[in-house]
Design a protein around this nucleic acid. Structure first.
Lengths: 222, 222
DNA sequence: TATAATTTTTAGACTAATCTAAATTATTTT
DNA sequence: AAAATAATTTAGATTAGTCTAAAAATTATA
């Protein structure tokens, strides 16, 4: 088992490595972890001993497959807890990160699988970031307008293209806010209005004028 | 703020002190914490420095009011998480302790208050132990038969007085098990049968023959 | 009430995670 | 390509939590 601290380094290195095939530098990690390079060097040796990273002195680290798998598991936990905090406990999307940073270290496979089921297997966290599945598989996200979602499709509110007070007040009043999961329950051809479900709880009927100003992140099966 | 380890000692000492006005011995704590007396001595000094306990060399410790308050806060968190695990995630009452031992250390007042609300302010955990309120106040538990509960009264299934396979199978099939919260929704005078709600979710109608064999822990307002 | 047995504390050591300062290696500049 | 600069690692120290073994204090016993 890895310590709390090791897990944080693993996640951090994974995040920094996302995109680049380059080795991650000691100072980049030190910057991200708000610690000193000397501390990072020690940790890299330890993670290297556990074969979670491939470390070459003075040339930075890359993650091993084993390390990536663990990182994805932690990210999965973090994002599932974020969904829980927003959907079940009604936190706002920007309030959940700090708490999820703690919850992501709770050790229990069973707990996470049950939480996933309880949340009805969400594909995305409240920030619109994809939730890796139990095998570490990630689906890529895609941005569209709520008005373009098909019947039964779901996604996360990720922005608005209209900023007038009356529009924002309407959203507020209807209980829609950033990070909420939206599923299309019915589409009415006549006036293009749609019935949606918010956070798998509340149903709502909205006009096309509203729907076409709400940005939704959906996942594309990859 | 107290560390994870400090919190575990505080809770442990509080538990051991429950009942006795005596000082708690070093070896009792060492036994409960599965650690050595020398380690406990060091920790007692630290907790004493923080005025969470009153420590007198060779004579054991007592908790201060400040220490008690913290202990109760941890116990509150532990028990609320247990309710969550059983009611929302459908764990069995005897599977939740280990996970709750981790969750009880998550730091966030707001989280706990929202969790409490989400669970509809339960008064008791799945083991039938009372959940301290936000001020550390505890209501004492009392054991009765489900058949004797009044309209709207609630409690936790804590045992059965009948052990025949057919009875136990009936409970199993109806979705009732140890640790489940039961609320009486309706009482039918004619045949003494009652409508109950299990874990604030599923409704069920049961006969008096069943109800009089189920032991329920309720809390007495104190 | 001395002595024996038990409990508790102290002393010294270890590991994990951190730091600062010095030494080493790599990179950039002229 | 040599010197200057920047990044990285090593060395040595610190704190929290733990241990074992020895010393000290308390409690039980004969």
């Amino acid at each position: 088992m890895n310590t709390f601290t090791e897990e944080n380094y693993i996640k951090c290195i994974y995040m920094l490595a996302a995109g680049t095939p380059e080795g991650i530098t000691t100072s980049a990690i030190a910057g991200a972890m708000k610690t000193k390079s000397a501390t990072v060097t020690d940790m890299l040796k330890k993670l290297s001993d556990k074969s979670l990273v491939k470390y070459e002195k003075y040339y930075g680290v890359k993650m091993t497959d084993k390390g990536k798998k663990i990182a994805l598991q932690i990210i999965r936990k973090h994002r599932l807890w974020e969904v829980f905090l927003v959907e079940a406990l009604n936190f706002k999307w920007d309030e959940v990160h700090v708490i999820a940073e703690q919850l992501e270290h709770i050790q229990s496979e069973e707990l996470i699988e049950r939480l996933d089921k309880f949340l009805e297997h969400p594909k995305m966290d409240p920030h619109g970031d994809p939730i890796p599945d139990n095998n570490g598989k990630i689906y890529t996200a895609h941005l569209t307008l709520l008005s373009q979602l098909k019947h039964k499709e779901a996604g996360v509110i990720s922005g608005v293209s209209e900023h007038s007070p009356s529009f924002l007040q309407y959203l507020e009043k209807s209980g829609m806010s950033l990070g909420n999961t939206i599923q299309v329950m019915e589409k009415h051809e006549f006036d293009q209005s749609i019935n949606i479900r918010i956070n798998r709880k509340k149903n709502l009927h909205i006009s096309n004028d509203i729907a076409k100003n709400i940005l939704i992140k959906t996942e594309d099966a990859k």
